[in-house]
């Protein structure tokens, strides 16, 4: 987690130097600040509290076609961001958790600060809680091309952690549609992260599904707006 006191201090010291365009002084590392606002665009898929990380190019929260980390599995199956944030922290990321569940049609917004570096990137993840292991987010979105005061919006795709088969059964979905189990250690799907195929639901022939027609979704499932504040 970032600490506020040193931020305020370094801002005060660095501010005069910014005005004359000096940023190479080793004693005054530039601080940057981003507002991250995530809007849930689905009909009836609450999204779990955000796991947000600012990091360098050496860390990846996930990659398409690669096995999910244990932290990502825990977020995608159960909505718990604790382990994923711990993984990012141990990879020297600055991390933050969101303010809570993001209900359909609503947004969550956080402000996160760190030291400027040339390969700075944003990653975040949130679970679609009425799924087995569906989530959305960004992995390694480069921030170096976002100028001070600039805003960028990106529409987000539904992703599948690939760690749990999409049975949609009442015992396997943790969201309010089912109230079943969240994370378990088993990996009984293809074990690589990829695009989510959507949910079938009991309304469309999967009799064992705990989900109704309202739980279906299409891409994009969310929108993120990133603004560089400092």
């Amino acid at each position: 987690m970032d600490i506020f006191k040193p931020l305020a201090l370094s801002t005060l010291i660095a501010a005069p130097l910014f005005l004359i365009g000096c940023s190479s002084d080793d004693n005054h590392v530039s601080r940057v600040s981003y507002q991250i606002e995530v809007t849930n665009l689905t009909a009836a898929q609450p999204m779990s509290p955000l796991a947000v990380a600012l990091h360098s190019g050496s860390y990846a929260m996930w990659q398409i076609g690669t096995s999910a980390s244990s932290g990502l599995e825990q977020l995608a199956e159960g909505g718990d961001n604790t382990a994923l944030l711990a993984e990012a922290s141990s990879a020297h990321a600055v991390t933050m958790t969101g303010n809570g569940l993001i209900l359909p049609g609503t947004s969550d917004s956080i402000i996160i600060n760190t030291n400027m570096k040339s390969d700075l990137a944003l990653s975040f993840a949130t679970m679609l809680v009425n799924t087995n292991d569906g989530f959305t987010g960004l992995s390694g979105d480069k921030l170096s091309n976002l100028a001070l005061g600039e805003t960028r919006s990106t529409e987000l795709l539904a992703l599948d952690a690939g760690t749990e088969a999409n049975s949609e059964s009442v015992v396997t979905i943790p969201g309010p549609a089912a109230g079943g189990e969240g994370y378990n250690v088993d990996r009984d799907d293809r074990d690589t992260v990829g695009g989510h195929p959507g949910v079938v639901t009991s309304a469309d022939g999967l009799a064992t599904s705990a989900l109704g027609e309202e739980h279906r979704f299409d891409n994009p499932v969310a929108r993120v707006t990133i603004t560089r504040l400092k």
């Binding site: 539904a158 088969a165 999409n166 989510h196 195929p197 959507g198 469309d204 022939g205 299409d218």
Partner: peptide
Amino acid sequence: GDSDPTGGASDLDSSVHRWLNP
């Protein structure tokens, strides 16, 4: 697709073979 591996209308599995664009 459907969820019947030995019958139904489709030979595809609705939980495996569906997709969303992109």
